[in-house]
Amino acid sequence: MALIAFILIGAVVVLSAMLVIVARNPVHSVLWLILAFFSSAGLMVLIGAEFLAMLLIVVYVGAVAVLFLFVVMMLDVDFVELKQGSLGYWPFALLIGVILVAELALVGAASGSLTFDTFDPSPGAETNTEAIGAVMYTQYLLLFQLAGVILLVAMIGAIVLTLRHRPNVKRQSVSAQTGRRRADATELKDPAPGQGI
């Protein structure tokens, strides 16, 4: 049962990953990418790493890919023009592909066979979540916090890049707005008939 599920989900991952590159429409590419992410999460569930699977969906599918889709939908790119220059990159693509296949073959040969029968998704703990937490907050605490600092720097960088103070923009001060009372905002006039204010 698990093997059938693995073959099915694995096939979907490989197919959708290929379609990411092959699809002509960039929005379709992103949609295939999302399917690839989602199916990879399925593979993680199969080996018992359910916490990682859910995080993959929440972070990559739920947030990162949404931003991809957002940006790609907004872009106005002429893809016929873009495709014309792409033939020149074939030698590089071929080189990278050959290196990847060679590396995979080396790893495969070195480890004998790629079986995961002895794989323990939650070593020394009851659940996958506890196992990850126990390692992340003890053994790799420094690296974990460093990753946090790097993300913080990236966040501050993004804010600095986009923060502009344009002088002619009307901004609403919410405290001033909610602090307004009737007396500040309205004035009662009693004009006589036939006269303006």
Binding site: V27, F51, M54, V58, G62
Partner: peptide, 24 residues
């Protein structure tokens, strides 16, 4: 599920795709 809360959170975070895809 052991990660039931995360599952719900993950699935509800996918809900945005239906709307984006429909709109696009």
């Amino acid at each position: 599920l052991n990660v039931g809360v995360l599952y719900l959170f993950a699935i509800s975070s996918l809900g945005v795709y239906g709307i984006i895809m429909g709109g696009w």
